[in-house]
C-alpha cells in the first residue's frame, strides 16, 4: 500500500513537472504574442492575454503540486529548506537547486503579476523580464533532475518546447514584431 502511494506520488510529481514545463512554454509564447498587440488563434487580443494568464496560473498550480507531491515522496528526500534555498539538496543538489531557483523566481513573478495594479507598470515589467531567466532554468532542471531526462520522448518534448520559445524569441527581436508596422509611439520617454 505504502509502496503504491510512493509510486503514485512519484508519478504525480514527474507528471506535474512535465506538464508545467509545457504550460510555461505556452505562457511564454502567448506572452510574446500578446505583447505584439496581435490577435491570434481566433480569440482576439484580449483572448491571447487571458490565455497567457490562464496558462501561467495553471503552470504555477502544477508546480505547487509538483513540489508538494515530491515533498511527501520519501524517495525524493526533499526538505522544506529546498523549497527556498537552492543547491542544498541531498539528491543531485545542482539540478534540484535549479528547480528551487526556478520556484523562487516563479514566486516573485507570480506575486508581482497578481499585484501589478499596486506595484505599477515599471516594476511589473522589470520583474516580468525575469521569465526569460525562469524558463531556461526550469528546462535545464527538468532535463538534469528528472528521472525521464534521458528518455528520447522526453528529449523530443523538451526540444519542441525549446524550438517554440526560440521561434517566438527571434520573432520578438525581429523588426516586424509590432503589429501592422504603423507609426506607433517611439518610446523616447522611459516609463
Amino acid at each position: 500500500m505504502t509502496a503504491h502511494l510512493d509510486t503514485a506520488l512519484w508519478a504525480l510529481g514527474r507528471g506535474t513537472g512535465m506538464v508545467a514545463l509545457v504550460m510555461f512554454t505556452l505562457t511564454l509564447v502567448l506572452g510574446i504574442v500578446s505583447r505584439s498587440g496581435r490577435a491570434a488563434l481566433g480569440v482576439g487580443r484580449f483572448g491571447v492575454a487571458e490565455l497567457h494568464r490562464t496558462a501561467a496560473l495553471t503552470g504555477t498550480g502544477l508546480i505547487t503540486l509538483h513540489i508538494g507531491t515530491l515533498y511527501f515522496d520519501p524517495y525524493a528526500q526533499l526538505k522544506l529548506v529546498d523549497f527556498v534555498f537552492p543547491f542544498l539538496g541531498s539528491y543531485r543538489p545542482f539540478w534540484l537547486g535549479l528547480g528551487t531557483l526556478a520556484v523562487d523566481l516563479l514566486i516573485v513573478i507570480t506575486v508581482v503579476s497578481l499585484l501589478r495594479e499596486r506595484v505599477g507598470p515599471r516594476v511589473f515589467r522589470a520583474v516580468h523580464c525575469a521569465t526569460y531567466a525562469l524558463w531556461p532554468v526550469a528546462l535545464v532542471h527538468a532535463l538534469g533532475n528528472g528521472s525521464d531526462g534521458g528518455a528520447l520522448w522526453f528529449r523530443v518534448l523538451a526540444g519542441l518546447c525549446a524550438a517554440a520559445v526560440g521561434i517566438a524569441l527571434s520573432w520578438r527581436l525581429s523588426a516586424g514584431y509590432v503589429e501592422r508596422g504603423r507609426v506607433r509611439i517611439p518610446r523616447s520617454v522611459p516609463r
Partner: peptide, 10 residues
Amino acid sequence: AAGQCGPCVN
C-alpha cells in the same frame, strides 16, 4: 509634443 500619447504622436 512629449511623445507619450499615441493620438498626439501620430
